[in-house]
Design a protein around this nucleic acid. Sequence first.
RNA 1: GCCCGGAUGGCGAAAUUGGCAGACGCAGCGGACUUAAAAUCCGCAGGCCGCAAGGCCGUGGGGGUUCAAGUCCCCCUCCGGGCACCA
Length: 845
Amino acid sequence: MADERELRYDPAAIEPKWQERWASDPTMYAAEPVFCGKPKYYVLEMLPYPSGQLHMGHVRNYSIGDALARHMWMRGYNVLHPMGWDAFGLPAENAALKNNTPPREWTLSNIAAMKRQMERLGLGYDWATEVTTCLPDYYRWNQWFFLRMYERGLVYRKKSKVNWCPECATVLANEQVVEGCCWRHETTLVEQRDLVQWFFRITAYAQELLDGLDKLDDWPEKVRIMQRNWIGRSEGTEVDFFLAEEAGEGNANLEQATEKKPIRVFTTRVDTIFGATSVQLAPQHALVAAFTATDPALKAQVDELLDQQKKAREAGDLGAIEKHGVPTGHFAMNPYNGKRVPIWVANYILADYGTGAIMSVPAHDERDFEFATKYGLPITQVIKPSDPSVATELPFCAHEGVLVNSGEYDGLSCDEAQKSLQDVAGRKGFGEAKIIFRLKDWGVSRQRYWGTPIPMIHCDKDGLVPVPDDQLPVVLPPQIEITQQGGSPLGRVPEFVNTTCPKCGGPARRETDTMDTFVDSSWYFYRYTDAKNDHAPFDPKVAQYWFPIDQYIGGVEHAILHLIYSRFWTKVMRDLGLIVNDEPARRLFTQGMVIKDGAKMSKSKGNVVSPDDMIAKYGADATRMYSLFAAPPDRDLDWQEDGVAGVSRFLARVWRLAEKHAPLARTGRGLTVDAPSGVSLKLLRKLHQTIAKITLDFEGRWHFNTCVAAIMELVNDLQAADAQLDAGEVSAPVMLELLRSLVLLLAPLAPYLAAELWEVLGEEGAVLRAPWPVSNPGLAREDELEIPVQVNGKLVTVVTVAADATTATIEAAALAGEKVQSRTAGKTVVKVIVVPGKLVNLVVK
RNA sequence: GCCCGGAUGGCGAAAUUGGCAGACGCAGCGGACUUAAAAUCCGCAGGCCGCAAGGCCGUGGGGGUUCAAGUCCCCCUCCGGGCACCA
């Protein structure tokens, strides 16, 4: 019985044993002090939301990060490999509603469950640095940062549109609006409501966030492009069109017109301004309200436009809105030529981009052309192609052209014209060059319970008063009844709301909004470096040692929000003097999704594979190794359970081989490998080739799938030589090197099996503390090579030559081959191409 | 519409710099061991034709460059992702 069990690879026995040992040694995965003298390496995986269950996407993400961390430990680095919990957020409140469990309790028990799963997977985290964002020792620093930002004018309040779900009776974040509906109530249309909201002035850093992308060479190009588009820098000109109410044709009365507030438009093509034939306002534009106040008919039409916008927005497809517009009956004057143009209101003009007003130049803009054609507005061409042979077809939107019909500017190129028109506008005071961004300030108010309370106090006498630092944290009241009523839940807790004004000591009310959870994840990775600090968010000296993160790993779904907010936060912290780095992470890696049966794993598709089931059936090593083996990490991974079984079979083969030959290997300790030959040489050669290949992959390419394949090849060779191994044709020191190295190579990929076999081989200490094997180039080199020989590009034969054979030798060997002879008989060899070490190609006629 | 990816055997994939297409694994087939099965081990395996030797075809489709193309260039199709009246 005992014998039978010994012959079987049993992860269910091996893995719990090592879990226990690792748990009992807190230094196992702990970062060393910053003065340890080793080079540092900070590897970070995105922290999960504690839903209560790890999914395969997590397993994949963490398997990559853990393999890297283990590899770096073995390379002698001081590694920081932390983990935490993005623990605030609406699901906890939903769970409270559903199960009557307090959000805190629900969240903490989920964390415990997921931490247990991580331990089962054998992920090597330094739990001493664990960060849980919903605990006051973390979120107090959110509040602290909020106050520092408030002091610097980076926090402000304004009235703003919010997404409102009438069913939940609460505000939703943009990302919780799915195709115009609430993510929880898929058929409930989200409404827009006006509320006073807190904002972070991220736009103050728009230019720097954009410029910084150029330096992030080791971020995926895809992510950088997405961020560039999101920031959306646009160079152009703002120009005032004066109101010209006087009826009649011809030039308006300038004196009269300039008395009123002009309409400021933004354009990237001020060179086309002589072709402006109308001014278009967004329905929400302030002037529209002024017009409609005295014109009920117009108001009805504008309401119609607003309604169309709203419907399109709810459908999640503002881009597809059919263009509609109404003339206001009012007129504006082009400041360059005094020309009067009608003012329209149109549904496709965005109120929150630029100035909410445009000049319409139908001849040189697709949209304006469509609109003008529909409503019969005049179309005036003012740019002609610089190449006169090109026929002009309107709209002509190219930037390469020459001005016509533009008075004194005729003949100028578009670029020249833009410059002089901007100069004139500046001189005469009716406009200026302007750079605008699509990026909006970050609305952080949430009318929810389970988030960081915003540390502000409303006093009737003193107005808005920040909570003094020594009164932080503003703690969430623990017992609160979660209901479906609208408004901030904290507003219904008098003990929380009622306070005294820090300035006057009089009665005052606390702010009841909480912060967006993206605040939590914007700086959590700094807290890891000094997680227990209760005087500051972290010690700047320690952060300076660890930052920037050397490798950040996560899903591409965070390409914009989290990764822009984090970059913003880093720049703010730098300006607060807390850190010296400009960017949080030197390298970013975005892994692919986990797919099953052609679709992303999801509950609704019913194709979810539980990590726990996989671990129970095949072990954590096989589960992790499969997730690395099935596809390169940047591509989508198709989960096939048979593949996990295959990896598990492979690990069993390794286990049997090691168990069988370990006794011989152990006797090789302390002995040197003498000049190997025969099967020993072949195996050592394969080993050193494998070490070189895997080392190279860890250093950059990260094709862990081929690393696993390479180890499989090595094991296959060992297996194939098993008869010779049994016959003693491999000496003890060679066997030791083979098995030892194999275990070291496996250590980052299958840590349990590696730890177990390390012990079986009689090694002292943890395999993680053993140095990564080094490839010996002399041993890795082949002494003979097989060179394919082609005739006219078609493979004819393969010749074996010495690895250092000269071109002439290779050519002679190739020509001597029988098959080559018969192929070339009676023909002329026109050309011989010899690529040493690669191939020979004979061109014959 | 614009911008990124991607398309290779029955399936997941490999080919790192233009140099033997299909490594490694899954599924399949044949054999050994076994009373039998499981497990394990050995072997076969891109397609078509052929008894075989061998031949022809083959990396989404079409063209091109090259002695040589999965890889480089041009055009097109399909799939995935992101953005989308941003003035």
